[in-house]
Design a protein around this nucleic acid. Sequence first.
DNA 1: TGCCAGGCCCTCTTTAGGGCCTT
Length: 217
Amino acid sequence: MCFLWHQFVVLQRLFNRYLPAMHRLSNRTHEETLVFFDLETTGLDTSTCDIVQLSAISGNKIFNVYMLPRCTMTDGASRVTGLTTCADGLFLHGQSLDTIPVKEALKSFISFLKTINNPLLVGHNCRRFDSPILLRIMSEFHLLDEFLDVLSGFLDTLPLSREMFGLQKYSQPFLVQHFLQRSYVAHNATEDVRALQALYRVWQPSMELVNKHRFRL
DNA sequence: TGCCAGGCCCTCTTTAGGGCCTT
């Protein structure tokens, strides 16, 4: 009897010790893989603009494509990105870029995501800007269902950083300067995703905050 | 000359308005 009671006490202690960890594990999304992404677009109007550059990074895997937009770039977008379009193609600071058709670019991005386990797309201000544009254009090319099937969700680092830190600004260049003590080539999607990945490594937000700021369609 | 969209956040607010954030 005494032996059984001892076994019970041992099991109870083990249970009490590991239950909180098991509970945290069940709520974690660590089986998801973070994929930092960014768009360069023809403008700021999320209902009409087109994507000209789509970049993503997950670990050491990098994705980047340029595409010819179906509409002209606004002066503001050309000014901040250095990208211009004409009948001959897409140019970065006057240098011609290799582009692929929009649908091919989107399908290529979906294929990239399929190589990643349960991808969670992470972007700065992506709830209000990048994700509505990406979802709209995926829908226009009848790729939305396939895209959503492969995707775990989105995570917006703008409200996440606002909740984590008390700063005067939360633009990505400011955050990079503040946390990484360096400047970078903002408004180039590849540089933006590398910078955001580096910021996230420094921040290491809690799963509670991640779950608070994640979303799906 | 500089803005052009739209939603969130903050405050000198809530019957509003300006700044921020993305290109």
